Simulated scan of single mutants.
Amino acid sequence: MSKNPFKLVECPRDAMQGLHDFVPTALKSAYLNLLLQVGFDTLDFGSFVSPKAIPQMADTEAVLDNLDLSNTDTKLLAIVANLRGVEEAIKHDQIHYLGFPFSISETFQQRNTNSSIKESLNTVEEMLSLCEKSGKTAVVYLSMGFGNPYGDEWNYEIVERWADTLVEKGVRILSLADTVGISTPEKIKTILPQLISHFSEIEIGVHLHSTPKERLEKIEAAYQAGVMRIDSALKGFGGCPMAADDLTGNIATEDVIQFLNAKGADLNLNMKKWNEAMELSTQIFS
């Protein structure tokens, strides 16, 4: 099989984290084990954050012990929000990526990680050092990268300035994250090509949230912008419980697959396992 040039990142962690009822560990694990067989580049499977903040992810360590990685090339990504989370995550050999939400909105950084942007930059530096020592790779999300609902200042220059700062610190994978669905096709097509051009040695991705009506337009805009790393979640489930009372869902993975297939991309996905995951998802997201 030819190597799929698109890095598809499936995000069940983001899909599940805002659910009111706790998903049993065995059910979570069964769902993730199916997704591991589909052929995604990366599975954003869990997080090492305070269980008081995100109770749905309190069993990430137990889930990890239940995952079958014997017959998959998919790499695991765990979200961390502070140094304690980094130290917990790097203990696990199965985890390849550590993801950190670095908000360029001061209000959201406080809401999401209970720290300032300045403090979070220090955490990123510590994370990069620990990742290097432990053989992990850091993924930093430029959260609220398309604007924010809090009235904090936002413009393209701010996005590029923080991207510059993070790259100078040693970040090699940046994902421009929407979180609340503020991104538009126009913003995507304006911001992403400039970032991709400016940081030609850096892997630039997108983590978009959207209403169902706007999903395809945003996927097409990201594709036209030259993005090769795309985060999404089965059926578009999810949203960030720290961002707003009304969760805006993720980009739906099936829409990404359909769009890229129509463009002639060879995604090398096991659609039988994908359909099994779709079926099992009804027990989680009913």
Rank of each mutant, 00 (worst) to 15 (best):
T165R: 08
S120C: 13
K169I: 00
E201A: 13
T137K: 11
M271P: 13
H198E: 11
I257F: 09
Q56P: 11
L35V: 02
D255G: 03
E201R: 01
Y223L: 05
P193M: 11
I182G: 02
R13W: 06
E10P: 13
A243D: 11
V159I: 13
S134F: 15
N122Y: 12
L32M: 10
L76T: 08
L8F: 12
F146V: 06
A225V: 11
V49P: 07
A244D: 14
S105I: 01
T113V: 03
L34R: 10
P212S: 07
I79A: 12
E217Q: 15
L36D: 06
E276W: 03
G205F: 08
D93G: 11
Q17F: 12
S47T: 06
E186M: 04
T72P: 03
L64H: 03
F237D: 00
F285T: 04
L176V: 15
S70R: 15
N82S: 14
P241A: 12
R172T: 05
A265M: 09
S105G: 01
N270G: 05
K263A: 14
A252P: 11
I251Y: 04
P51A: 02
D14S: 04
G226L: 02
A244S: 15
F48S: 10
A15N: 07
A89P: 02
N33F: 13
D246H: 12
A277L: 08
F285H: 09
I251S: 12
G18C: 07
K218E: 08
Y141S: 05
V140W: 08
